[in-house]
């Protein structure tokens, strides 16, 4: 019994600690202020795609490196090995197939640009920068982005971001395309403000 109570007390205290830390996501000003101090983000991510056609979610894994103001390396290690590089206003994607490296044109697609550009904005705490989406800050560090126009809503119904208890860190992003189709991105092992060489945003 004593052990049980001790576990419960520990769990409650940990929860309280987490809740107190979430306070960085209580207001837009607070979020922007915190994000201002972030120069770089490195993380591992797990992407799970849920769709009616799939019996179980399709899981992709990879790493993310961001350097302010707008350099991004978005690398998938499985199931398709690919690297998306964003640096100096250009977006390039390379796909590895066996030993071959193929330069891919799909990053140029309008719909893909939306996702990529949003990512770099979020890293900077700019959740209200895109006029296509209406941002809403909800309790518990949840940010909901809803398209303002039907043309965008036909592609993305809403985006939900959950802030981590660590200031400046996004815990997960869920992109809803319809009720039955959504993509969840969960970020782990997040490291902030470490020096990142420019070359990783230019080369494979």
């Amino acid at each position: 019994m004593k052990v049980f109570i001790s576990i419960v007390i520990k769990a409650i205290s940990m929860l309280l600690l987490a809740l107190s830390l979430v306070s960085w996501g209580d207001s837009w000003d607070q979020i922007k202020k915190t994000a201002k101090d972030i120069t770089s983000v490195e993380a591992v991510f797990v992407q799970t795609k849920h769709m009616e056609i799939l019996s179980k979610p399709l899981v992709s894994k990879g790493t993310l490196t961001f350097h302010a103001p707008d350099s991004l390396r978005w690398e998938y290690t499985s199931p398709v090995r690919s690297v998306l590089l964003m640096h100096g206003g250009t977006v390039t994607r390379y796909v590895k197939r066996g030993d071959a490296v193929i330069k891919d044109s799909s990053a140029r697609l309008q719909s893909m640009r939306v996702v990529i550009q949003e990512l770099t904005m979020w890293m900077k705490g700019n959740f209200d920068a895109n006029p296509s989406f209406k941002p809403e800050l909800k309790k518990g560090g949840i940010i909901q982005l809803t398209p303002r126009e039907k043309s965008m809503a036909d592609i993305i119904r809403r985006i939900e971001l959950r802030l981590s208890s660590t200031p400046g860190v996004i815990r997960s992003v869920v992109i809803y395309e319809s009720q039955k189709s959504y993509t969840m991105l969960e970020f782990r092992n997040v490291r902030l403000n470490r020096p990142v060489p420019d070359s990783i945003f230019r080369n494979m």
Binding site: Q47, S60, W74, Y76, V80, I102, D104, L109, M112, V115
Partner: peptide, 28 residues
Amino acid sequence: RATMIGVTVADSETGRLRCSLMSIEGLV
């Protein structure tokens, strides 16, 4: 050149097909 992920449910008996094409980032 473009790389995508394709999901297909195919039934050889009926010829019925359902297919989905998405970007690597999961955008359908």
